[in-house]
Design a protein around this nucleic acid. Sequence first.
DNA 1: TTGTATGCGTTATCAT
DNA 2: ATGATAACGCATACAA
Lengths: 335, 335
Amino acid sequence: MAVTIKDIARIANVSIATVSKVINGKDSDLSEKTIENVKRIIEEENYSPNSLARSMITKKTKTIGLIIPDVSNPFFTDLTRGAEDIANKRGYSIFYCNTDDDLDKEIRYINNLIEKQVDGIALSGAIVRDKRRERNININVPIVSLDREVYFKGIQGNIEVDNFNGAYEAVNYLIEIGHKSILFLSGQLDIRPSKKRLEGYKKALKDNDIPFDEDLVIVGEFSSDFGYKIMNEMQLKDDTKAIFCGNDLIAIGAMNALKEKGKRIPGDVSIVGFDDIYISSLVNPRLTTVMQPSYDIGYKAVERLIDIIEKKDSANKEVKIQTKLIIRESTSKRA
Amino acid sequence: MAVTIKDIARIANVSIATVSKVINGKDSDLSEKTIENVKRIIEEENYSPNSLARSMITKKTKTIGLIIPDVSNPFFTDLTRGAEDIANKRGYSIFYCNTDDDLDKEIRYINNLIEKQVDGIALSGAIVRDKRRERNININVPIVSLDREVYFKGIQGNIEVDNFNGAYEAVNYLIEIGHKSILFLSGQLDIRPSKKRLEGYKKALKDNDIPFDEDLVIVGEFSSDFGYKIMNEMQLKDDTKAIFCGNDLIAIGAMNALKEKGKRIPGDVSIVGFDDIYISSLVNPRLTTVMQPSYDIGYKAVERLIDIIEKKDSANKEVKIQTKLIIRESTSKRA
DNA sequence: TTGTATGCGTTATCAT
DNA sequence: ATGATAACGCATACAA
């Protein structure tokens, strides 16, 4: 049996109210002597308050849920780390949950988190959504959505990366260095970031008077496998010497396939990724890419969430995060 | 105000005891009619039980803590994923915590988890330990330690990778293909895995009648930076054409530095890593390495922990996990 | 300056 | 077949 506040009270010869007061620092009207005494006994008895009991009364658990598709995806691992850092700094604990982009699993997690009385949820939704179903689900804690679009009732904030502009800059850069025929290897188009990247791609072409060629857009998954396989299967048109990829994994896969085919990068083909995951600067040649500050995204999302929970809620509930084009070695002027 | 069991009872015109019974499936002696009725109202009212209140009574939170140095380290991200998968499968939630290899932070997390009444903790300890201090800390929930050695009282299980054998096989392989002078770029020697790898390295030399040369062991950190910098600073002895690295990040860093210096891999230098993180098969040349099943490690640790919590505790509390040498392209016969 | 009493939402025991 | 009630460990309003 763990020692409780009652035990401390008994041993210290005071009431539990008194003990409670010193535990919570509300000891302004207690005598120095009792405070010291109680503290000593708490120490001696190795007393640790039961936060469940406390939460029953305060209606706060100092706990939040973080729901993401998969930590193994480097983008989300950094995001997860950022989330934990700010949570810890603010005195919150994180329940972390992987949905594998499965909406059912996501909803089960949400229900579980609500039962566990989390103070709020940071959610990066599964790829395929169901507006109808989501709108019927009542979530009674603050949620901030992260990067992806969700339709639950009561979303209280949104952290969004400027994917449009990120893609625009990347493609524009490719055009600047002489490329006109640019292949776009996209991830699933169901999620907003993909749509925005496609829009950015199109806009950059348009602004440079290059006609859009739909054969140059191939939709797959956000994996190196997709990049590798598609580059193995398909034959690049003679004049397309540049590839813009939906993320770095795709880019790295594509790069590997191309290298195996004897193509030189960037000599024969220029490649740009998206994300700037850890390995992109470790790969050979080092990858030119659009950096998304994934750590910051997690950090800011949770910071925002906690602000909402604690009503420190500032004005703007939409946070837009900018990307940055990192030019490394996988791109070069078109010969 | 959230709807409680009381509200359901009132609306259904039954007692809270009855409602509680249907919630928990203990309805063997309730009439079909009331069961259906209560269920319907629970549905209608969107009732969600408060697990805090439940846990106060059952003394179980169905929650465990996972403490690791850093999710961003690819080894730990996979481990974290494995941990979550089994936890979820068994109906548990995970509090996840990063210590940055800081023992103080680790202990703060442990205390916090205990206050939150976790049913158990899976712990991969910080690098630098403090036996004296740890032995004074009383942890009243089951802990299983993961990969690294810790000294808290009440450790109830241990998942350990056979680092000795992993290193032995790797070095032995290098010797088999003709290498005699093998540089060892080790991570911090404070943790047991590093010590074991060093032992394995030495043993392989010994078994092949190669004298141990302490100049060939360099201790740094488990980062690509270390590998990169050390290979930039130092001059390889003429006859050392093989490097065994404490992990893949070191190996990749070293490989990059060497390539920049004009060395060909594996033509001029053979390199072996440790871990088999995701990127090792994406890098060029693809890295020969000692695979640690990091996902399984997390999975089995938490599985073991839950078994202990639920007293399904089978006999052996020590789980030893085997490594596997993955031969890829970064190694070749010595010319 | 300290203590008493109530209640948080549930489960579990024991009546009825 | 159903219900009344104690108990879990704590915070808080109020009394002393």
